[in-house]
Write a protein that binds this DNA or RNA. Structure first.
Lengths: 105, 105
DNA sequence: TACACTTGCAACCGTTCGGTTTCATGAACT
DNA sequence: AGTTCATGAAACCGAACGGTTGCAAGTGTA
């Protein structure tokens, strides 16, 4: 069973849950109301997110509040960084070209 | 069949292929040599990447060169941006705290 | 033309995924 | 103590995934 951050964000429902939890901690019941699935399906997603350590739980009486472990998202950001570097380099190249064109004019 | 950028980067082999193609265009045969799988498996990954428009092909004689459509990676970057905003905000808050502490000392 | 090379595609296989249904557990309320 | 509420876990299902094997098609070369 692969269980990493990339696999966690592969599912659109999980991405939506992550985005929700970025704003505030929520209980499974509260999360469920934002979607068209059953509570159990949400619960399964939360299980996966917990296993990936993208989310942490905090028991409050009989409710469990889930909140986002936002630091984990940096894993994705770091991987993307190598490509961002490339397109930023291209952009500055374009900038140079434009500067040269302007000069000539 | 879900076929989007997030699902494309969920697989570690595909991530490695993407990273390879970011450096230079390659043929399936050349790509295969970097991995421990069969050519056909790589071919399947390339098919998925093509369907996601993350990769484009260019026929050169009997060889096909695959290259990365790096712009597509921005989709991921844009989604991550919302979280980057949060952790950067937290970082600058920390910065403020440190500044205040320094002042007091 | 015959043959080697590069590649894609279809069929199959075991595993995982995402979901539903059902049941168990533990906290809060009456 | 009994009931309701919030939640997780297990069993099951159909679909998709990732891989392998075998084959077909097109290009280059002797």
């Amino acid at each position: 069973m692969r269980r990493d951050t990339f696999q966690a964000i592969a599912d659109p429902t999980r991405r939506a849950i992550i985005a929700l939890l970025a704003l505030q901690a929520m209980t499974p019941n509260a999360i469920e109301k934002h979607f068209d699935t059953t509570r159990q399906a949400v619960s399964k997603h939360l299980r996966i997110l917990t296993e990936c350590e993208l989310v942490r739980q905090e028991q409050k009486g009989r409710e469990i509040y889930y909140s986002l472990e936002i630091e984990k998202m940096k894993e994705i950001d770091e991987w993307i960084a190598q490509f961002r570097k490339i397109w930023e380099a291209r952009f500055s190249q374009l900038d140079e070209v434009l500067a040269v064109m302007k000069k000539k004019k």
